[in-house]
Design a protein around this nucleic acid. Structure first.
Length: 194
DNA sequence: ATGATGATTAACT
DNA sequence: GTTAATCATCATG
């Protein structure tokens, strides 16, 4: 079952842990690819590490729209990352999808990534974007429709039970201490585990 | 128009 | 553990 847009129109800190175990799907020319979401990070508006902190710009427009739309950005001169805007219009908060466990279309992901090791397919935000074939043209996409959406945890049968680890975020220089990173305990596809 | 800055990754030692 | 690669976006002039 596709997750409804209203799911995203709540506080990011509530939505983020609920997103773990759900399935992120893309249907592109090459075929359908699916990963199980195992790691996410929250970015709020009143949060120095967030792109929305300094207000709305051309780049961050989608973060300030209605919850449930894709926010994609380019960084380090070579990588794209994928977020889902949450909450209500004008609020500027969202969830970065950091890692996923390949479920379907694994051969397609291998081709896109040029790697054969299944662990390395989507265990990082830019890797996940590449494996799923997400591009800038998906910017602002409505996550409850079309060829890019999320399926509920029980889509493929009774969901597996798991514990959620809450910790600090990765790769930022401000507001480092906020516990806004969530991942599935013990999952081998989570990035940068100790 | 120009310069600083990354919500990273891969390939090293 | 360290580091180079590389450019869109933003703030400033």
């Amino acid at each position: 079952m596709i997750v409804d847009i209203s799911f995203y129109q709540r506080d990011a800190l509530i939505v983020a842990p609920e997103l773990l175990g759900c399935y992120l799907v893309t249907e592109k020319q090459e075929g359908t690819t699916i990963v199980r979401i195992v790691e996410v990070e929250v970015y709020l508006q009143d949060d120095k590490a967030a792109h929305s902190y300094r207000g709305e710009t051309e780049r961050t427009r989608a973060l300030f729209g209605d919850g449930g739309h894709a926010y994609i950005y380019f960084t380090y001169g070579m990588h794209y990352c994928f977020n889902i805007a949450t909450s209500v219009k004008g609020r500027g908060e969202g969830i970065l999808i950091r890692a996923g466990e390949p479920v379907e279309g694994i051969e397609i992901m291998r081709q896109r990534r040029g790697k054969h090791n299944q662990i390395d397919l989507a265990n990082g935000p830019a890797k996940l974007v590449q494996a799923l074939g997400i591009t800038k043209s998906d910017y602002g996409h409505d996550m409850s429709t079309g060829n890019l959406y999320v399926l509920s945890k029980d889509h493929f049968g009774p969901p597996e039970r798991f514990a959620i680890v809450t910790t600090t975020r990765v790769g930022i220089s401000e507001d480092k201490d906020l516990p806004y990173r969530f991942y599935i305990e013990g999952n081998p596809f989570v990035s940068r585990t100790k």
